[in-house]
């Protein structure tokens, strides 16, 4: 069988520079998620993870951008979000992914919590250059 390839069907980029932007971002993501047919539970998980990650981004990097992609793969549809900032970066990603670890504000649930809510989670970071977190949530096949 041909391996199903992932295609991007729609893209939108949002700049985030203030905590008030989170609500706007969340509303936008909910629209995308409902368009691709994610269940209301999966929508809630997606926007909660968004809230965690955006707050992280604002805390550590002051600002950044979020790219919202609608995806298709075979007969599945999904939403992929990329959170990119030019902040200080994370020196020890394994440590940052541990429950309860926090170098700043919050309960240290941000990264590992967001990962638990998602189907896909990928993080890349270079100290002094910034951090990129990519998450995705898929509909059932």
């Amino acid at each position: 069988m041909l391996p199903a390839t992932t295609n991007v069907t729609a893209t939108e980029t949002v700049f985030v520079g203030h905590e008030k932007d989170i609500m706007l971002l969340v509303t936008l993501i909910r629209q995308h998620a409902s368009l691709v047919g994610l269940t209301s539970l999966d929508q809630t998980k997606l926007i909660t993870a968004t809230s965690e990650l955006t707050r992280n981004m604002l805390n550590y990097a002051d600002k950044g951008q979020v790219i919202i992609d609608q995806l298709t793969r075979g007969n599945q549809r999904g939403v992929q979000l990329t959170f990119a900032d030019n902040g200080p970066g994370i020196a020890d990603i394994d440590q940052a992914m541990e429950d309860g670890y926090s170098s700043g504000l919050g309960l240290g649930l941000g990264l590992p919590g967001a990962k638990r809510l998602m189907d896909e989670f990928h993080i890349a970071s270079v100290v002094g250059q910034g951090t990129t977190v990519t998450i995705a949530k898929w509909t059932d096949e």
């Binding site: 539970l41 929508q43 998980k45 909660t48 919590g113 967001a114 638990r116 809510l117």
Partner: peptide, 13 residues
Amino acid sequence: QPAVAITLVELGL
């Protein structure tokens, strides 16, 4: 809301 409760539990909160 049920969806919020499930999300909180999955989040570990």
